[in-house]
Design a protein around this nucleic acid. Sequence first.
DNA 1: TTACTTGCAAACGCTTTGCACGCAC
DNA 2: GTGCGTGCAAAGCGTTTGCAAGTAA
Lengths: 136, 136
Amino acid sequence: MSKATRMTKQKKVILDILRNTDCHPSADWVYEQARKLVPDISLGTVYRNLNVLRDSGHILELNYGSTYSRYDGHAENHYHFYCEKCHQLFNVKIPVYEGLDKLVKETTGFDVKNHRMEFYGLCNDCKASLSSSSSM
Amino acid sequence: MSKATRMTKQKKVILDILRNTDCHPSADWVYEQARKLVPDISLGTVYRNLNVLRDSGHILELNYGSTYSRYDGHAENHYHFYCEKCHQLFNVKIPVYEGLDKLVKETTGFDVKNHRMEFYGLCNDCKASLSSSSSM
DNA sequence: TTACTTGCAAACGCTTTGCACGCAC
DNA sequence: GTGCGTGCAAAGCGTTTGCAAGTAA
């Protein structure tokens, strides 16, 4: 399906970083981490590889909630929660409703391949810091 | 909840445009339409008002699927379908699962306020143009 | 009158890209 | 050896913002 895709040191490092984190980092964060292992890696290379890995289905690009994309090294579909105060992304551990794709396919006639769902609100820490009036 | 919010000619025009279209336009498209009614309106004003209207809950900002935001003048929650070929956004007419917010609230403990869902795939036109091999 | 809103244009921030060199295959 | 991937830096592009003038309340 995709082009040759040569496995370079840089691409391997980027994929490893994403696979071994449970947060949903920005391209810049990945770049900072990658520099510890490949000091002369460039930000352009990070972006290029993130796009390649996204296109080949190895990672997810999450582009809601803020002005920049975040990436997720776990490509199986799952839902996310976005905290509107601290802007963190969390995984939501409820089952993915596969049947929804079929329902929408029947309703619209479109060729539905997958779906995404994001929940919005306040995470535990931010909820607490609000209810205790001002925390500092 | 929000500031004074003065009703200006510009803000009214922008809201009217969004209320009276069934597509999900970009800021630039809104700007082009608004110029027909207020010729000397500026793009900065369009962006400022879109943000004000979004913050006051009058419109939705949809920022998935591409590098720029689209806007929806119908603020009640509903789901969307994004065509990966022609990049159009469509409304999906299935009921909104309000219970999901409660489920996630119970699962995570977070203060869940709302959720969004987007389906991805090919719309009817793009599906047809693919199945007929190459249309040109 | 007051201070929110505007038009203009410059600046901003994230992302992409052109180029020549380097390296995986 | 071939041509895809890289580092570097500049450009691209959607969006935001500082400022002085305009205008809704």
